[in-house]
């Protein structure tokens, strides 16, 4: 069965065009619309020429004009939409970072990010996954970028570092918020209570391991960036009052489908790290206690408080011994 309309085929074809297969056309079109310098540059790119297996193929050779738009303008609808859509998604994922940097500067970073991290997932939820690591790997560039410090903080090396620390911290916090929000949770699961540990025979307590809830993440930051991230979401953030640069230890989790941020002490954070890494309760406590400057009674009292807080925060789902 023949499906083609001979008159349409004749009308559309360019004289002398060699056959272009579907794969080549798709590679060509993608090269056009993702090119950072626009579709004209895309048309001249090696990628486009290789896709079509021709030394020179113009946009007009591939795309028909309409009555109102040239071939190039028509293709630019897709090219403009590609970056507009993905930048919008990244701004939605990183609203506090966008607020801190200003939309123009954020877009500049995000645009560069998309050049090296185009989406390879079926879901836009994965688009910003590597953005914090991208910013970290471009720390030197960010330090040198005057635009990345738009509020006119007096610039010296330490200030630059603090500013970039805050930028990267915010990205890490906001990405974590997204992952915790949409990842697996404990809403339908029982979690570990103080009584569960009390029920373990005393001689076995040191050997148990705690299984962390799947929504729990630990973040060590160089600033109190979470305060700005939360304030942005509440509409109360101000770039006149930026977070303090101070080592900050966070537990991020989800309760009743809402992401929660818990600020913890350094020793508490270390203990949580060890437990989450699978060390036994006894080994974990011993290691942190050894490094603590506190006397044992005071340290034990503080640790008891931590366990109560963890139970209330539903950080662990069960204890296991093996």
């Amino acid at each position: 069965m023949a499906f083609s309309d001979p008159s349409l085929a004749e009308e559309n074809a360019l004289t002398g065009n060699s056959h272009r297969n579907l794969h080549g056309i798709q590679r060509w079109m993608q090269a056009m619309i993702v090119n950072p310098d626009g579709v004209r540059s895309g048309a001249a790119s090696d990628e486009a020429r290789i896709a079509i297996q021709s030394k020179s193929v113009s946009i007009e050779d591939m795309i028909l004009p309409s009555r109102a738009l040239s071939s190039q303008r028509r293709l630019e609808v897709y090219a403009n939409a590609y970056y507009a859509r993905l930048l919008e998604c990244l701004r939605d994922e990183y609203p506090a970072l966008t607020s801190l940097l200003g939309e123009e500067t954020f877009n500049a970073f995000a645009f560069e990010y998309l050049q090296t991290h185009p989406s390879r997932s079926y879901t836009l939820a994965d688009l910003g996954q590597a953005f914090p690591a991208f910013l970290e790997s471009n720390r030197a560039v960010a330090c040198a970028d005057d635009n990345a410090n738009p509020i006119g903080v007096e610039e010296d090396t330490s200030t630059d570092q603090s500013w970039v620390d805050l930028m990267i911290d915010l990205a890490r916090v906001e990405r974590t918020y997204c992952e915790v929000f949409s990842g697996p949770g404990i809403e339908q699961t029982a979690t570990l209570q103080a009584d569960d540990i009390a029920a373990v025979p005393a001689e076995e307590v040191g050997d148990i391991r705690l299984q962390v809830a799947p929504c729990v993440r630990l973040l060590k930051l160089n600033s109190r960036a979470h305060e700005f991230a939360i304030a942005t979401r509440k509409g109360t953030a101000s770039t006149d009052q930026l977070p303090e640069s101070v080592p900050t230890y966070l537990v991020i989790t989800r309760l009743n489908y809402v992401v929660r941020t818990i600020v913890v002490e350094q020793e508490e954070f270390q203990l949580l790290q060890l437990l989450i890494n699978g060390d036994t309760l006894g080994d974990s406590i011993a290691q942190v206690a050894d490094e603590s400057p506190l006397e044992e009674p005071e340290w034990l009292a503080r640790m008891a408080g931590w366990f109560e807080k963890w139970a209330a925060g539903r950080l662990f789902v069960q204890c296991v011994s093996w």
């Binding site: 579907l22 794969h23 079926y122």
Partner: peptide, 20 residues
């Protein structure tokens, strides 16, 4: 998208027998 990339756009195909 092609080459493992996703543009997250609904891109058109050429309407011909190969595509069909």
């Amino acid at each position: 998208g092609v080459a493992s990339k996703n543009t997250h756009d609904l891109l058109p195909v050429p309407y011909n027998e190969e595509t069909l």
